[in-house]
Design a binder for these strands. Sequence first.
RNA 1: GGGUCAUUAACUCAGUUGGUUCAGAGUGUUACCUUGACAGGGUAGAAGUCACUGGUUCGAAUCCAGUAUGACCCACCA
Length: 876
Amino acid sequence: MSIPSKYDAKKVEQKWYHYWIKHQYFQSKPDNRTPYTIVIPPPNVTGVLHMGHMLNNTIQDVLIRRARLKGKNACWVPGTDHASIATEAKVVAKLKEKGIEKNDLTRDEFLAHAWEWTHEYGGVILNQLKKLGCSCDWDRTKFTLDDDMSESVISVFVDLYNKGLIYRGYRMVNWDPKAQTTLSDEEVIYEEQQGHLYYVEYNIEGSSDRLTIATTRPETILGDSAICINPNDERFSHLKGKKAIVPLCNRVIPIIEDEYVDMEFGTGCLKVTPAHDENDKILGDKHKLEVIDIFNPDATLNSFGLHYEGQDRFEVRKQIATELKDQGHLVKIENHTHKVGTSERTKVVIEPRLSDQWFLKMEDLAKPALEAVLEDESIRLFPKKFNNTYRHWMENIRDWNISRQLFWGQQIPAYYYGDSKDDVVVAKTKEDALKLAKEKSKNPKLTAEDLKQDPDVLDTWFSSWLWPISVFDGIRNPNNDEINYYYPTNDLVTGPDILFFWVARMIVAGFEFKGQKPFENVYLTGLVRDKQRRKMSKSLGNSPDALKLIEDFSADGVRVGLLLSSAAGNDLLFDEALCQQGKAFGNKIWNAFRLIQGWKVEPIDQPEYAQKALDWYDAKFQQILTEIEDQFNKYRLSDALMAIYKLVWDDFCSWLLEMIKPEYGQPIDETSHKKVVHLLEQNLKILHPFMPFLTEEIWHYLKNRTPESALVVASWPQTKDYNAQLLHNFEITKEVISGIRNLRKQKQIPFKTSVEMQVLNKAKYTTQYDGLVAKLGNISQIKYVDASVDQAFSFRVGASDYFIVADIDLDVEAEISKIEEELRYTEGFLKSVQNKLSNQRFVTNAPEQVVANEKKKEADAIAKIETLKSSLSGLK
RNA sequence: GGGUCAUUAACUCAGUUGGUUCAGAGUGUUACCUUGACAGGGUAGAAGUCACUGGUUCGAAUCCAGUAUGACCCACCA
């Protein structure tokens, strides 16, 4: 079988992905193995893969592939989210291009367009995940608007309504004037903006006095229903009980008193606009003020806006300022920075607005979810610092506005049978609703036509909070085999930006609807940023094209690149150079494999050095294996990968292969070859979760494999005890070899020139590796001596001296000064150790172990000084 | 305004209960090497007042207090 000298990632990756799918390795069905389950954070159905997804899903794939290798029944459930606002906005925009307005369509017509769009673009992102190598069970792919998923959502709504946890309320909500829907508090992003503080004068009724208020939103004065002063503010005591006149519209409004007003801010006078500010609403309720809504749903002014009717709020703000100025009501304008709420999806400024919405009471629901994370820690967040954030949110949780004024989503199963808002019933189907309506209205003559379903749909998160349950049909069929087997799932991998949107709510839903946590561990990744630390975003154009990256660096390379520097919770500064490093690593492995496979194998005796080297690597592998087990348990994937990287590159390639490599043109013995192939296979196994394609390719080149023995379903290496002393001795051997190389370089002794070495070494604990030292140092002979060797170059490792006898003039002066320098350093070191030891408080207070160590350091230093002195006198 | 976390080499980060060479890794950089797996390579080296100030301790990158800078989260100051 001929092996290509260049690794063709594109071809290989396609080949093996097909192979894995064909042999159904990613499929999972309940059986008697332990399950290991991950549900994917469903991406937007019409989205495309970005760097965040790449990172996220690479991590999930690493975890799931490792679990599969460890013999678990690994199940990774993929799917997409209908993302109501985002998708609806895209559909609306697309229709607009065709000259179609959303308002001209019926609900069903609009939904038909939306589904068409979904079918056209939906799933693109899932195909991109396949390119990345993700080993999802594609037969389980779910969409949050699938019929069964929707049924689950509706049934949960009805259930919560019947429990009295869902209510309809007339409240101040966050209104997105562009999408023309409400948003939950979590969907509002507060951004600091440079604005102005307008000082506006109001006339006082029946007086020539005037008062000045400060406002950031002068356009809302048309909706003013009071002026508020602090009762303790003596500056305004003469105004108590009087009335003010709103400029422009000349409406007469009361001057009320409330301690809410901050006397320090602005003028100490506050205008009250209950329809357009949450605090004003509270004040308004308290003082029974009129509520004057001056906006249309798209944030243009309505008839209360007088001559500004139909114009946009920000346009009106400018014009009204001018008009106020012209009429002598504007005192001054100051610059003022403040936080403005914007829509997470459409980016427009949120308008606080009073409207009827559906809410879910969260307080009681949150309790078990809070305990699970913070008290019994049955759910663990990685990194742990998010516990605090989680606690704060959960303890201050507010009711969740779950209704959206959109078409794309599950329509709220509430049916009105009369003119009043209270003439409402909630049921899974219209038939059930009719039954209930007849009872409630005591009107048996009601027909289905009399029922009008609430036009709103549910917040998308109200479907995705059920995800770990509903993908296994655990809502509709609470005790089916799948949910019983797979739930609770094991790990959840997602970004901290949706900790509240999704993670916290899933935990709530898990306890409420399943009586159990939805997952054990939550791995929160960082944000992917560019080299300048800017967040990657479409608008900045700094986000690389995911598929292009895979094209350029191979899927394996990109995976390694992403993971190399992505400790959980830390932002990842993405740099293509990392992918390049990943790709180079792949190349290194490929070439190591080619070397091994290229050797001629013959049934000759195994040289001793080869056996020693292979035994050493065996132990080294075990050491690293143990280490990465620990790192995986702590979700330190980056560290685990780095440990493997160094194991393969440094220990396997640079040391082991160099040590067992036969002379050029010579064969290798069968025993060694068999063993090194085995060790390579072990490496491939632990590499496979990170670099699935390359490893599978080499795995099949090494031996003929049946589909059952593919690497993807191989077994993870067993951890065994290893000889730590052996590893320690070998490290010393490495130092000796480095010493030789170093000395050759300094003295310009070419590697091809074989030299003799003499060793002054009382312990002789590394003599077993003399063969290796001879091979890698090109040493003709190693002799052990009892005294320093004159006329030789020397170096020192530990307490031993190594002398290289070469036929080259020795610069005695240089040797002497080198030794003298080391002598000075060692004497200084000895002095500091002895100082410490003569400190009575140290000796009495420090633990025995530490004192003993210091004493050993002292003894070593004394011994070293002795040998240094003797070589010095030898040279002189 | 409240809170959380961070600050270690040129860059990105480890450093687990204070005590073994604990001042580390990867990248970059420097010098040299390189026809026989791999220049996407090899060998060797340089590089840090562990943000600052004080404290606790025999001993502090590590614990405590404060300061500075940055990031993030939360909150209704017009």
